[in-house]
C-alpha cells in the first residue's frame, strides 16, 4: 500500500478514487508515564513517555485507516492528514484520514 501526504504519486497514475478513509484512537496517559514525565520535565527535554504514546496512537489510527482502504480494494492512500484533540484531561484523540485510490504505474 502506497501512503503519501501529497495529492499525486510520481510514476503512478490514479485510475480510481474510493473516497475518504479514516482511523482514530483515543488514548489516556497513565500514572506511571505521568510520574516519569513529571520528573523529566523538571530539567526539560524530550518527554519520551509521551512521545511514545503519540507514536503508538498514530500507528493505531493509521492501521485502522489502512484496513478501511484495503477493504475498499485500494492500493494507495493520498493526501493523508493527522489531527489531535483533547477529549478530557489526560486523554486525547488522534485521527488519521486520507483518500483511498487505485494507482497503476505510468507507461
Amino acid at each position: 500500500m502506497i501512503v503519501v501526504n501529497t495529492e499525486t504519486v510520481p510514476g503512478y497514475r490514479i485510475v480510481r478514487a474510493f473516497g475518504l478513509v479514516q482511523g482514530n484512537t483515543v488514548r489516556a496517559r497513565n500514572v506511571g508515564r505521568d510520574f516519569l514525565a513529571g520528573l523529566k520535565n523538571i530539567v526539560g527535554g524530550e518527554l519520551s513517555e509521551y512521545t511514545e504514546l503519540l507514536t503508538e496512537s498514530r500507528e493505531q489510527a493509521t492501521a485502522r485507516m489502512l484496513h478501511e482502504a484495503r477493504q475498499l480494494g485500494a492500493n494507495a492512500i493520498v493526501n493523508v492528514r493527522y489531527s489531535t484533540s483533547t477529549v478530557a484531561a489526560g486523554a486525547a484523540e488522534l485521527y488519521a484520514y486520507g483518500t483511498a485510490v487505485q494507482v497503476v504505474p505510468e507507461d
Binding site: 502506497i2 501512503v3 503519501v4 501526504n5 501529497t6 504519486v9 510520481p10 510514476g11 503512478y12 514525565a37 523529566k40 520535565n41 523538571i42 530539567v43 526539560g44 527535554g45 524530550e46 518527554l47 519520551s48 509521551y50 512521545t51 504514546l53 503519540l54 507514536t55 498514530r58 493509521t62 493523508v80 493527522y82
Partner: peptide
C-alpha cells in the same frame, strides 16, 4: 521504493526555571 509517508511525534518539556 515508491514514495512513502514518514511521521514524527515529539513531546518536549520546558524546564521548571524557564
Amino acid at each position: 521504493a515508491a514514495p512513502r509517508l514518514l511521521n514524527v511525534e515529539l513531546v518536549w518539556g520546558v524546564d521548571r526555571f524557564q
